[in-house]
Design a protein around this nucleic acid. Structure first.
Lengths: 338, 338
DNA sequence: GGCTGGCACTCGGGCGGACAGAGTGCCAGG
DNA sequence: CCTGGCACTCTGTCCGCCCGAGTGCCAGCC
């Protein structure tokens, strides 16, 4: 087990390295933090920390930098979450309050997160399957053409065009709309398949085909993979990454373009509480030199989606975690109000 | 006026520089293109081209590289648009045909363009104001709460929540819906303000306030600035930019995040035909070392929005222009079908 | 008049050596 | 267990050097 002082040395190394972006040596450490011991002692501690794999030297006779394992210990044991200041919180709230619709909420959230953390922000749209149905609307656009519109309690709206096998009268449409809504309004989307299963049975034979088509389109819309959307921003912050750009930045940009990768990344994160994935803890190897801080957000107690930031492993964890948590909280509030 | 051969020399310089990314000298030029003259002659031509400002040397005793003015001449006079091959066109069509809704069309278009040109792709959503109204739907979500849904002929769907000043009955709602649609369905959105102007007059005093509120929300949605959306992709291609990354790439990423800047950029481009803005021709200075190739697309003869790519001034103009034109054409077709 | 080969000149990039600085590991002593 | 001292190592940088690519100019040739 590591002594208290060694943990302090690790903490100091992380803090200094995050600040200066340069390997930190024993002398500089004792000068900037009053540890009450000499550089020589710190050197011994460093040697021990290196043996345990918490820090490493880029080359002999250079200072030390934290390893992924070192950051992990730092995040778990040594650092708290830095709360936002009151003015910051007010600014967050004001900024988000101006949103006119869900797209706008998400767009503003991305901007805000990117700006606060100076990193790349990722915000997932509220998941359909975890939301509840506010309303299902059916619009007749042509005799055999129906538009299906789903509206969630979080304000998300999804639409699909349905080509019907047979013409579908206004009366039948109104009938279907009414029955459909009475069954699913207020229920969770994940329950919808079960709730509408036997719906076609109540219709005339001639309409039954169309009803089935409409319902199957509805169910398709709810299939996990397709229904997830997200928005990213702050990619310009990647340029602050390090001096060895091309190699680092490229795979990150590629990962950010692959929604599938990102969704998986957010999906892996725990459902409640904040998740921090550091460097190689990320399954996707393009992100091996980045850390991902993510958290669920939602209008009620339950998370309807996740948001987070992607940045270099060398990031200000307490500050980033504080910002992510605060933003998630306010977004949840906004959604609950709408 | 430049002689025919000098133009050929310029063309050769542009082609070689685009290929190799290195200043091109007189000897290399004569070896790779059979111009039928000696390096010395080419040197004289180069000196002339430099005097006219079409090419420049990074430093004395280096080869020449084209200037913005040189690229301009190349694009205007020396290079055609390279048509896509038949298999490429088939691939484009197949890829776009799989789209399920407008979001998907736009997303696929961005991906496709980025992949074909290996540059950053930008696609604007079909503009509301240039589209025609397919349907306006009003949904009562609560006694004094209405959701307004606009559907365009291009498949774009826009929704807004309206808080009514007074409760609004189902009957009144149906009435408003019917009158609204009979006036605006099939008309251009830009005509909508004029068409609905006197609509509140037909309603009872008690409903008139609500009707006005709904209509003003409708009009707000149509205000130019707010209604424009776009999607970008292929930012990872920026890493192929040059070796002097951080300085070049950063402002470009920043510009790409500023939708306002991008929209202006696309907006400035001519309405019909392809527009190429080279280097300093771009008003936004972060894009001074990039070129923007853009073109309008639309379901009919008229453009409903624009799409294009952003890349280094040192780009393959004929190929890029060919890809942009082809993609725009197919997107237009897809929209017309939906 | 325009093209060509020849020639002297310039400049950037790469290579190698020297040097300073930062940091380490180890050891003996308090 | 901490500390000061010491020898060692490695990096980054600066300098001088040379080579090669490319140029501009000029005299001669067609």
């Amino acid at each position: 087990m590591l002594s208290e002082r060694r943990l302090q040395v690790l903490r100091a190394i992380v803090q200094d390295y995050v600040g200066t972006e340069e390997p930190v040596g024993s002398k500089a450490l004792t000068e900037r933090h009053n540890l009450g011991v000499s550089p020589a002692t710190v050197r011994n501690d460093m040697a021990a920390l290196e043996d345990e794999g918490f820090i490493a030297q880029p080359h002999t006779s250079a200072g030390r930098i934290p390893t992924d394992k070192g950051y992990r210990l730092f995040v778990d044991k040594l650092a708290g979450v830095k709360p936002m200041s009151a003015p910051e919180r007010r600014a967050i709230q004001n900024f988000l309050d101006g949103a006119v619709d869900l797209d706008d909420v998400v767009a503003r959230t991305v901007r805000l997160l990117a700006q606060l953390t100076r990193q790349v922000a990722v915000v997932q749209y509220p998941s359909l399957t975890r939301s509840t149905v506010r309303h299902v609307e059916l619009l007749s656009l042509a005799p055999a053409r129906v538009m299906l519109v789903l509206i969630t309690d979080t304000g998300r709206v999804e639409q699909r065009m349905v080509d019907c096998p047979a013409p579908f009268g206004e009366a039948s449409l109104a009938d279907l709309r009414a029955r459909l809504n009475s069954r699913v309004a207020g229920r969770r989307f994940s329950d919808v398949p079960r709730l509408v299963e036997d719906l076609p049975e109540g219709f005339d034979a001639e309409d039954r085909g169309t009803v089935s088509t409409v319902l199957s389109t509805l169910l398709e819309t709810l299939v996990e993979e397709n229904e997830e959307r997200l928005m990213i921003g702050g990619t310009a912050n990647l340029t602050r990454f390090g001096h060895d750009f091309p190699l680092t930045i490229r795979p990150v940009l590629e990962a950010l373009e692959e929604q599938v990768v990102l969704l998986k990344l957010l999906g892996e994160a725990g459902d409640s509480g904040m998740t921090v994935r550091i460097g190689h803890e990320n399954a996707y190897e393009g992100l091996n030199s980045t850390s991902v801080v993510s958290v669920g957000y939602g209008s009620g107690g339950e998370a309807v989606a996740k948001l987070g930031v992607v940045g270099p492993t060398r990031m200000d964890y307490p500050g980033t975690m504080g910002a992510v948590r605060a933003v998630a909280r306010y977004v949840g509030q906004i959604l609950a109000e709408s």
